[in-house]
Design a protein around this nucleic acid. Structure first.
Lengths: 214, 214
DNA sequence: GTCTATAAACTGATAGAC
DNA sequence: GTCTATCAGTTTATAGAC
């Protein structure tokens, strides 16, 4: 986070504040205050608060989804060459494992994960609109791949199961990051898996079992 | 919704507006305007906006969680009498099926489901605080029951899997209700299961497969 | 219990100097 | 590209009449 330009400082501050308070509850004054930037800088760099949020999401979602599509296409190509169906576990890894990168990265990755885990079912049109623009083509590509992996499963049941997978992932990510940021889940007197890699493995195997069987 | 007192009109209006816009984005003026009540009525009846939200959640979560606990205790008692472990599928039914009641009820149940599906990972402390007060004892009771059903599974893995179940449920509920309220998920060119009962059955079987196996 | 009026503070956005 | 000052509108909450 050290030695940044104003633009990136603003996006980092927005990410951190919105991770905790949400979009509507975070004001431009709070953001520019934390970023040590001038209030007018947001409008200068991004045009509006909404433009700032769009830039904040683009910065994270573009590389995330590019990696997902790379891994998806690699498995589809491998399956084609080997004359087999795409493997469900490999498809789930392509969809979920690129998220781990944000847990490892020091600079603000955890803040984005918090936003990411909520945005899948956010009530705010402003923020969900930009998220869906990134996600719809990715979802469609994965849906097609899962159809090839499970050709006898009806499309509506398959779609439902993929939504179950996404929901389980989003909730797991939220729990994992809440553990770091707030003390909420510490109210639960239950042992938590706190290493992202172990939780990811458990998540993938859980969803492999849930998905298969027509 | 017809012939209500001011108090209930306000809660209904709050539920409908917050389902779409979230807590921070819904003002007391919008709520009292829709409820055809005076602005000051919120403070008179509930003390504050936060008090109103607490009342809104209590009204739905108390009967929901009471039904869940009833079903849970029925299965635990039945298992005890029959000298067997509690059945995973029955535990999931106890946790999830009472939610269906809100889809069937005409008056505003769908609005609550939208709020309910997001509150599990809401960024707003105000609303999540009141939700957790209802949920923590319920979660603990179900965690204990699942431990009896899966005694060889380590507690941290079990907790993770239960969170996966909850996440899949919350996301499925959100998708189902979004389908009704907005046109967002219609952007996905994918067939959707639109009957709550069929989706619930698919959800339960998905999570039974995911949970079992130590 | 319901109303009006208003307090006190906050919001996103912009004009214009430097 | 950064700054101050300000606009115009919003917010929750309350005092006090009826």
């Amino acid at each position: 986070m050290a030695q940044e330009n104003t633009r990136d400082s603003i996006l980092d501050a927005a990410e951190e504040l919105m991770a905790r308070r949400g979009y509507a509850n975070t004001s431009m004054r709070q953001i520019t205050g934390k970023a040590k930037a001038n209030l007018a800088a947001v409008n200068y760099h991004f045009g509006s608060k909404e433009g700032m949020v769009a830039a904040m999401l683009d910065r994270r979602l573009e590389p995330l989804n590019r990696k997902r599509m790379e891994l998806l296409e690699a498995e589809m190509e491998k399956a084609r060459l080997e004359g087999r169906r795409p493997d469900i576990e490999m498809l789930l890894r392509a969809l979920f494992e690129p998220i781990l990168r944000f847990f490892r990265s020091s600079e603000g990755g955890g803040n984005f994960i918090k936003i990411f885990s909520q945005i899948h079912s956010d009530s705010d049109d402003t923020i969900r609109k930009h998220f869906l623009r990134h996600m719809i083509p990715v979802f469609m590509a994965f849906f097609t791949a899962f159809q090839e992996a499970l050709p006898t499963l009806s499309p509506d049941k398959l779609a439902a199961r993929i939504f179950f997978c996404i929901g389980s992932m989003a909730h797991a990510a939220n729990i994992l990051v809440n553990e770091k940021i707030t003390t909420i889940s510490s109210q639960l007197k239950v042992p938590m898996m706190s290493d992202p890699e172990g939780l990811m493995e458990e998540l993938i195997q859980f969803n492999v079992r849930g998905l298969e069987i027509s």
